[in-house]
Design a binder for these strands. Structure first.
Lengths: 338, 338
DNA sequence: CGACATTGGTTTAACGTAAAACCTTGATCT
DNA sequence: AGATCAAGGTTTTACGTTAAACCAATGTCG
């Protein structure tokens, strides 16, 4: 038999469809216990499950949240191979499920055609992770949905935001290295974009140098991409200079590559060069030596994002901007200088 | 203004709603070029996007594919922190998007209440990754949807399956170690479940021993969980025995933990103990020493899964069982024995 | 010249659900 | 006794889209 509808249940329980709907949605003010029992029993025996499309069509709400993460345009693939995104998503999904919401995962690339197709599904809200492209925000605004931006620095009251204080975190990290006697600290990072997290971390790095009275040396800034390979590539450049005794990487992935590269070049970590990461991805304890890094508890951040959007959708009062804390995880990749 | 409907377009273009629908869905046999132009222009200026719920309600098809991956019941979180799942999902999403399908990501736990709620959305098809639990297959069968199982060994013509030949792969890996002079080969793995991939890999391991005339020693089998920590824990047990000169881990994550643990115990890899992994996760080249492992090209597998379900849904002819190839990636964690 | 296609549409009904308005019956109040 | 109310429903309608059936005007053929 085809999937039973609310009418089949109504017939089986000998009531009207509306009564079934009322009972099923908890509006049981108007239904005797006996009727409820008959309906529930019919639901069970027929295996009824409400048709979400119909429900969403009539109620104009879907209990679906769209989760957008960047994908690499050239490889046409979600950045889930970056464990950062994987972990955030995992946290978001967990929180959404707990709050009775569903998740539709989609990529945002350069063209972002996907956005309005997505919107056709009638999302109740949106979580956008790591967005930076100018035009995107306009498109998002045009959708006119409750939207939570994770790790974006755009100032716009249309959006809710969740993130850490990247500048302060990077500043702390740099001070941590400086405090251990390092005065030649390299900054290894991805592209420094306006309004991106990396820009703030860069600012934090420079502020720490300032505060410590160390002259900023642009040749110590290595800006490439947030990948293992970029770290690997940077190793040679860092190993070639003896004024650099420590490297602050704005991502664990980069730090992992840097360590692997330095090791291959015969450098010892942390004796010759100290390395510090950012994120505290699970990989950071797997590499050798175990990476000292900034923990931004990604999973918890994802959970929080899910909980926040749920709260927003449930019309609770949610601050426009939420900032979470960060701690330094000390492992084996940073040494005090001689 | 509220989101425009097909009727608004019809009015603006001065035709009936049906004509708009026809034009928009490519059934333009019956529409003059001029009408088409008027309609398209109205669509553009009003910013019309079809309401998927309405469409799916009437057509009984949603172009949505449900993607189910396990989640840890205790932590209530998707296994995306296992890079294997993250990479598969990334591949699936990419292929689905290319084929014009959407993806709804959900977790399957022990209770699997989620399943029928999910089914309320009217998925066109399902991809289930790494399912093993007995009752689950029955539930999946009851949904009566085209379903592709990735990495499951259940024999049932209701399902399409995609996977590698785990037994052959493990057998090759073990032979690889034996061929390099190792006769004491440990098998470090997760739980060995009936019909799971690990069971097959276990069978492959034993077959290789048999073929090489090496007596099977159950004390060389370390079965725990598919985690870094289990690898770490196993290190002590392996280091304590001098009859073991190599370890075959059924997952890179475990191998990574094992290497870290052995290193901490002062063992040299691969001089003292060789380690071999399985999966070729991106982490396997980040750890030290770089891991020799079996590459099952996870991303490509995910893509293939997406393409297969799309082909199935588009009524193309798809074999019930697809087996992909595997290669050995030689890095630095295996040595020939003296 | 009447039969028949073809082109370019339109109208009607239906998908499954829920909001809103309505109806019955019996009890309660004044 | 008539008015009022509550309990426990039912009926009607609408959500946005498409399948199916229908129609009118024009061209075409034997």
């Amino acid at each position: 038999m085809a999937r039973p509808t609310i009418k089949d249940i109504a017939q089986a329980a000998n009531v009207s469809a509306m009564t079934v709907s009322n009972v099923l949605n908890g509006r049981r003010a108007k239904a005797s216990d006996e009727t409820v029992e008959r309906i529930m029993s019919a639901v069970r025996t027929l295996g009824y499950r409400p048709n979400m499309s119909a429900r969403s069509l009539v109620s104009n709400a879907s209990r679906m949240v769209g989760v957008l993460i960047p994908f690499t345009e050239n490889q046409n693939q979600l950045l889930l191979d970056n464990p950062f995104y994987a972990e955030v998503i995992s946290g978001i999904e967990s929180a959404l499920r707990t709050n009775g919401y569903y998740m539709m995962l989609a990529g945002i690339g350069e063209r972002t055609v996907e956005l309005d197709t997505l919107s056709g599904w009638g999302m109740d809200g949106l979580i956008v992770v790591g967005a930076y492209r100018e035009g995107l925000f306009e498109q998002l605004r045009a959708l006119d949905l409750p939207t939570l931006l994770v790790d974006s620095y755009i100032e716009d009251d249309h959006f809710y935001r969740l993130g850490i204080d990247d500048e302060a975190a990077a500043c702390r990290a740099t001070h941590y290295l400086i405090g251990r006697g390092h005065r030649g600290v390299a900054f290894v990072t991805g592209v420094i974009r306006t309004d991106g997290v990396v820009e703030r971390r860069y600012a934090g790095y420079r502020r720490a140098l300032d505060e410590a009275g160390i002259a900023f040396d642009p040749s110590r800034v290595l800006s490439g991409s947030v990948t293992f390979d970029w770290g690997l590539e940077s190793a040679a450049r860092i190993a070639a200079r003896d004024d650099i005794t420590a490297a602050f990487c704005t991502a664990d992935l980069v730090a992992a590559g840097l360590q692997a590269g330095l090791l291959k070049l015969g450098k010892r970590i942390p004796e010759d060069i100290s390395v510090m990461g950012f994120d505290n991805l699970s990989v950071s304890r797997m590499i050798y030596p175990a990476l000292t890094t900034i923990d931004q508890s990604i999973l918890a951040k994802g959970r929080l994002a899910g909980n926040l959007i749920a709260a927003i959708l449930d019309k609770k009062d949610v601050p426009r901007r939420t900032v979470t804390d960060v701690i330094i995880i000390e492992r084996d990749s940073v040494a005090r200088r001689r």
